[in-house]
Structures are given as C-alpha cells and as structure tokens.
Simulated scan of single mutants.
Amino acid sequence: MRIIAGKYKGRTVKFPKSNLVRPTTDKNKESIFNFLVNQIDFDGIRVLDIYAGSGSLGLEALSRGASEVHFVEKDFHVSKMLEENINSLNAKNECKIFRMEAIRFSKIKEHEKYNLILADPPFFNYDVHIVVKNILDNNFLEDDGIFLVERSIQTKGKDEEAFQQNYFRKLGDSLIYIFNKEKKLL
C-alpha cells in the first residue's frame, strides 16, 4: 500500500497481516480521494479516521494538506503498526491515536469537530451503524464537513436500512456512503 498524492506521495504504508484489518485498496483510495478533492480544500483541515487500521486513509489526507488527523483503532497490535506508519513520516505532531472502540469514541460528548471523517470498518462489522448515528447526533462534523463510510456490497441491505439512504458510489465490491451535518447524502 502506498500514499497516492501530496507531500508523502509514493511512501509505503505498512499494514499487519491480520484478519482484523482489511485495508482500502489503492484503487479505491484513489477514487475516494479524487471525489473528496473536488469537495474539500485539504489545506489545514482536521480529519478523523475511524477503524483506522494501518492509517492509510488518514495518512493520505495528511499528505494532501490536513493539519491534524485523529485515528481511532481498538486493537493494540494494529495501533502499534499505525504508530510506526506515523513515525515513518515524521508526523507524530500532526497525529493522535485513540486506542478504543469506535462506539465508545463516538459517544464522547466533549470532542473536536472535524472537516472530514473517514470510516472503513471491517465489512461484516455492524457496530458502524451505531457509530454513524452517534457521530452525526453528537455533532462531530463541522458545518461544511463530510463523513464518508466504506462498506461491502454484501452488507448493502442492512447498511441502507440503518443509514436510511442509498449508497453514493460503488467501487469494486465496496459501497461508499456519504453524509453531511444534516445527515443527508451529498
């Protein structure tokens, strides 16, 4: 896996060999960021990468100009690899890792506001439905913020019922859902 664009372009992002992590493919990441670049000015934004895994999505945003990226990753060993990836970019001052479950993080009442929130949970993990609701209800997004969730085509029915909207875009076997502060698809 690599960083596609920006100041860290071409740098490798390591990920653990574990069934706990399902990294977004470079092709999907490129499609996601091609869309986002037309929606957001990355310079100086604050980003939240939930279910961060190796941190590939958040580090891509950092490379493109985000000033601060917060990562949420519950697994200790996976978060250690995330920390290695951050350190390999000398980006420790711009990054913060929250070692906790996404549901617990999404319930925090006193929190930062983010311009971009990225969620790429394990495909058959359904706690993301609660996390999306909590984040939107608890006002994690800035007024012009975007919340992007990557899911599997195999979970489409349950996801669309829980999110109360259709997917935005299909990328291979992934479906992309996008929310704004009003909980609506863009």
Rank of each mutant, 00 (worst) to 15 (best):
G55W: 00
E94T: 00
A102N: 09
K113L: 14
G53I: 03
V132K: 07
V128L: 09
S79A: 15
H129G: 07
L57Y: 05
I103G: 00
V47Y: 08
L116H: 08
V131C: 11
D127I: 08
N90M: 09
S88A: 14
K107W: 01
M100C: 12
A91G: 09
E68K: 15
K92C: 03
S56F: 01
Y114N: 07
K113W: 00
D75R: 05
S56Y: 00
F123K: 05
I86S: 12
D137P: 05
K107N: 11
E101T: 13
V128K: 08
S56L: 04
L136P: 02
A91F: 06
L89K: 10
G55I: 02
K96Y: 10
V69R: 11
N139V: 03
C95A: 12
V78N: 03
A102K: 06
F98V: 01
N134R: 06
A91Y: 07
G55M: 04
K133F: 01
D120E: 02
I108A: 12
F140W: 08
G58D: 01
S56H: 00
K74H: 07
L116N: 09
S88H: 12
N87R: 15
N115Y: 03
F124V: 11
S56G: 12
Y51E: 08
I117G: 09
A61V: 03
N90K: 15
H70T: 00
R99N: 11
